[in-house]
Structure formats: structure tokens, C-alpha cells
Amino acid sequence: MPKRRLLQFACAIAANPWVFYLKTRKIYQGHAKGLCFPGLNCYACPFALLSCPIGSIQHSFSLFHRGLDFFQKAFYSLIYTGGVVILIGMITGRLVCGWVCPIGLIQDILHKIPAPKIRLPEKMKVLKYLTLTFLVFILPLLTGVHWFSRLCPAGSLQGAVPLLIFKPASGMPRLGPFFWFKISILALVVIWMILTSRPFCRTLCPLGAIYGLFNGISLYRLEVSREKCTGCGKCVTVCPVEINVKDNANSPECVRCLECKKACDSGAIKSGFNPTFSKEYRKSKRYSS
């Protein structure tokens, strides 16, 4: 099994190791829940150890809605959760999307199912920024409700489905029409994941939208050597997010899975944190990033 796949599975298990739930039917209540997992991992999952960063950011904005009494708490929780996400973005960019996030793993696996494959229209990529702005920032601020969490298919898959199977000790609340609406969204997104590569990352994920903004400046980056590049196009063919790697290796869309680097026969693509790598590569002419 490739190293990346192993790490994705390891991170998915590491984010959801609370097997004591099966005995106690109570979710993890320890202090680790105050930490944010770097990827999208719903904390409604009965096995979740850490909190979801997007759920936490929405919680911070919704606290502002409650009034001045909560302002201080809201401010500090927003700086804390926003700081975690910005920190990860500045260091790794979207590396988390390619190597850590369980939803990325699920998409990678589902897309391997034999089915007609459909390219994603370019214009749909802007949807994730709208999701981030309205469902994560503005609507929770104005209404106090976690709007993205209400619609998030990761919540349905990681939270609702396991809780239906392994009912909590406090009992499962009666499921209404909204629950089935969420399951419908999940079903549609799962089908889409089979037909299109990484559709959630490219069109809906607000966390990926934030990390992607830092791809161009993060300490971890990709670089393409113009001298070594033969223009074979293999990097573009294998790219799961369908970007033109040789022209824009640090695109906000890139999930830094490094499939392009693996596919490149001439060693023209390099990745890393090391600034000396940049010095060597500055000597050769390169495509602008």
C-alpha cells in the first residue's frame, strides 16, 4: 500500500480512536476535545477524539450572536481556532487535504470504483469560497446556527450513520425530515465522489478553501524545473484535482498528494520545506507559480 494511503488510514483512525464508546455509549469527554484536528473530521462521530476545525470556527462565530456577554469568549475562541487553521495553512498549505483528511481518503477510495468519470467544470471551484463565507462565517454570525454543519455530508457520514448504528446511552432523538434531507445530500455527494475526482475538496470544503489560500506562500511547496520538464503531461494526467501542474504547481486547488511528483519520469517536480532546494531551483528557469 502506498505511503500516502497508509498515512491517510492512520490519521483517520487516530482522529477516531475512542472505542470505549462501544462499551459506555458516551462520546469522549476528555481535554483532547479542546484541540482541533487538522482535517475535516466531524466531532459528532461517536469515536472522535478531537474537534472539527470548521465546527469550532462556526461555534466561535455563533457565540458573537449571543451578545456582548459572550463577546470575550467568542473573540478568544475565534483567535484560537482561526489561529490553528492559519498556522497549518502557512506551514503546509493543503498538504493536510492530500495526506491527513479522512474525507480526502474516502474520496480517493470511492473514485477508484469503476464508473464513467466526469471532469469538474472550472467555475464550480468558486463554490467552496462561497460555502466558507456564507455557511461558516456570515450565517453563524447572524443566526447563531452552525449552518455548514447542518449541511455537511461529513457530519452525516461520520456522525449520523455511526450514531444510528451504535445508539448513545442518552438515547437517539427522533429523526425528522431534516435528517433524511442530510442523508440525501450525503448520497448525492457519495455518487459524485465516484464520478468525479475529489469533488468535495474542490467545490464544497471550506477548510480546503482556507488552506488553499496559503498554498502560494506556505513553507512547504512544490517546484517544477523548466530545464528538466519534458512536457510529457503525465503530471497533469494523474493530478486528482485536474490542475496544470507545470504551470501552477502551487495552485490553491492543489491538495499536495504528490502524485505528479511520483509520475514524473524526469524528476522535474520537487517538494519540501528546505530553502536550499529553492536556491538550486532558482538557478534554473522555471514556470511561474
Binding site: G34, S51, Y76
Partner: peptide, 25 residues
């Protein structure tokens, strides 16, 4: 921010089952 209350706020939020996430209104 974590020291001054951010961490405890996120902790309190994470300790409850997120009804929005599972679709209970």
C-alpha cells in the same frame, strides 16, 4: 487565545453531540 478561554470554549462545544451535524433540529 487558548489560554484566555478559547480552549475551554471549544472543549465545551466538543463535549456535546453536535445535533446540527447529525441532522436533528
Amino acid at each position: 487565545a487558548a489560554f484566555f478561554g478559547g480552549f475551554s470554549s471549544i472543549l465545551a462545544n466538543g463535549r456535546t453531540i453536535c445535533l446540527d451535524c447529525i441532522g436533528i433540529l
